Simulated scan of single mutants.
Amino acid sequence: MNFTLHQLQVFLKVSETKSITKAAEELFLTQPAVSIQLKNFQDQFDIPLTEVVGRQLYVTDFGQEIAFAAQAIIDQVNAINYKLAAYKGQLSGRLKIASVSTGKYVIPFFLSGFLRGNPQIELKLDVTNKAQVVRSLVDNEIDFALVSILPDKVPVHAVPLMENRLVLVAGRDFQPPLGVSGIEIFQYITLIYRESGSGTRLAMEGFLNDHKVPIKKMLVLTSNEAVKQAVMAGLGCSIMPVIGIKNELKQGDLKVIEVKGLPICTYWNLIYLKSKRLSPVAEAFLSYLDREKNTVIEQNFQ
Rank of each mutant, 00 (worst) to 15 (best):
Q299K: 15
L168C: 01
L235M: 13
T190G: 06
N300Y: 12
A69R: 15
P108C: 07
D253K: 11
V154L: 13
R165G: 02
I243R: 10
V180W: 03
D290S: 07
Y82H: 13
Y58W: 13
E292D: 08
A145L: 04
A69D: 12
T50F: 11
N81Q: 12
K250I: 06
Q42D: 03
I271A: 00
V59A: 07
I80Y: 11
Y272C: 00
L202Q: 10
L115G: 00
E248F: 12
L146W: 11
S198I: 04
P177V: 11
S101A: 09
N294W: 15
I257N: 00
T21R: 13
K39D: 04
Y267A: 12
L84M: 12
R291D: 01
S92F: 08
M204K: 07
E225N: 09
T222L: 09
M162Q: 08
L208Q: 05
K22H: 06
P155I: 04
L235I: 06
D173F: 05
Q120K: 14
L161T: 04
P263N: 02
N294Q: 14
D210T: 13
S287F: 10
K212D: 02
L208K: 03
V227F: 00
I192P: 00
L270N: 02
N247E: 15
A226I: 12
Y87C: 08
A233I: 01
V256Q: 00
A131H: 09
G182K: 04
A226C: 06
T295V: 13
I215C: 05
I74E: 10
L262G: 08
L29M: 15
N209Y: 04
M218E: 09
S112M: 13
E205Q: 10
V167A: 12
W268D: 04
Q175T: 08
Y193F: 15
M232R: 03
E122Y: 12
I20F: 05
P280D: 08
V52G: 02
Q37I: 00
V138P: 01
Y82W: 09
Q187T: 10
K153S: 13
L166Y: 15
N78R: 15
E163F: 14
N140A: 09
L168V: 01
T4Y: 07
I107H: 06
N269D: 09
L123T: 05
I66Q: 03
V220G: 02
A67C: 08
K22R: 13
L137N: 02
G89N: 00
G54M: 04
E163V: 11
P177Q: 02
F28E: 12
L115I: 11
L262K: 01
F3C: 11
G171Q: 03
E248M: 02
V242L: 14
R194I: 04
K18V: 14
L289Q: 03
